[in-house]
Design a protein around this nucleic acid. Structure first.
Lengths: 208, 208
DNA sequence: ATTTAATTTAACCAAATGGTTAAAAAAGTT
DNA sequence: AACTTTTTTAACCATTTGGTTAAATTAAAT
């Protein structure tokens, strides 16, 4: 962004501090809810310096969107394109995905909300990235069906089912707490055993 | 809101037109993204009249939240508290729920996003309503497990799995389209067969 | 016809907000 | 020391936005 002559490109550089603050604020409040002043405050600097590094709110937002997507996309690609046997692939994906989400609670909701309100920023940011190639996975599932290893199922629905069960409970946490009458502690315990429960459920559904 | 002397309380009354416009704008753009001017425009009236009926943006927003929740909560209650046999209950719930969501695309995302950013408006609006009583459903599932009718499963996870698979594909539609490389037409077809696919998947997972 | 309510117009206000600027101070580089 | 870059300060600007007000108009109720 700015010529760095004596700058530490490290984790605590000013540019990085700004980016981290922006990441926090944008992912929690979205483009509309985020205020430049709050980002500056949280980065421990002032608005002038903020614009000195990132010229506008849009630029900052785009940087955050790019970073967020560049982590989300490869996770899905990995599921689709690896060469593991189906069951092992599913096990690993659920484990990996729920793990990532538990550590980045706000990111999935951020992506899903913002992609609706500001689609332009996302299509720009995601096109250059290499999108997942689902055909490999489709073929693998169809093959497992044909050889009778698993019950007949459309590959696309399988994958959407798995992703849904991994992500939704984190998205809908407050809602689910209300509907199911869970305390914060119960909810924590619930989400902790999710990996195992989802894996069991999916594999059970696939039994021939 | 206002003394109505010669007013048609009908669907095309001004107050109703305002509410409908607000419902549209708020559910699509959220509290922060919604502008009073846009609501007025879409209702075909002016800002002054808007404030004449609903005194503030907050009041309007709360009215919309109440309306939205008062439709969403009973749907879940119905699942939990009816006296149908388990399999039939699951079938009906999936059918009902996916049906509702297809006709109200923006509502689930609205609830889920906004409950994070403005929790106060939601706890107010939902407490007076009678919340679902999940114990009936829990007992039913536990019973079915004990008598060997279904595979062992924690009732809470079952219900969350079902809800996840019903709602998430609509929430994540744009994302899924990207990841799975679906055209708009393919996506429509995909969502059309969802009812059947989810039902099959859940019942398969429950086989003993 | 008189009164009351509904609606429009249009100007206006105050606060919030994204963004700019210029000058000075601090820190780093040579 | 001389020079460059980074950071702060603080004032400032333009726009957007939620909200108000007052007066005029239209429509309905009595």
């Amino acid at each position: 962004m700015v010529k760095k002559v004596h700058q530490d490109t490290d984790a605590d550089s000013t540019e990085q501090k700004i980016f981290d603050a922006a990441h926090e604020v944008f992912t929690q409040k979205g483009m509309d809810g985020a205020k430049m002043q709050e980002i500056a405050d949280r980065a421990g600097i002032n608005k002038a310096l903020l614009h000195y590094y990132y010229r506008s709110k849009e630029k900052l937002y785009e940087a955050v969107v790019r970073a967020v997507l560049s982590r989300a996309v490869p996770a899905v690609r990995q599921l689709m394109e690896s060469e593991l046997p189906l069951e092992e692939k599913i096990r690993q994906f659920i484990d990996l995905y729920i793990g990532i989400i538990s550590r980045n609670t706000f990111v999935p909701l951020f992506i899903i909300s913002e992609i609706n309100k500001h689609p332009d920023h996302f299509i720009e940011a995601i096109l250059p990235k290499e999108l997942p190639q689902p055909e490999v996975f489709y073929a693998q599932v169809n093959d497992a069906v044909a050889t009778g290893q698993i019950r007949p199922i459309a590959p696309q629905h399988l994958i959407v089912n798995v992703i849904s069960m991994c992500i939704f409970p984190f998205l809908g946490k407050p809602l689910l707490r209300m509907f199911l009458g869970m305390s914060a502690e119960e909810m924590r315990a619930f989400l902790d055993v999710r990996k195992k429960e989802v894996t069991d459920f999916v594999l059970a559904a696939l039994r021939p």
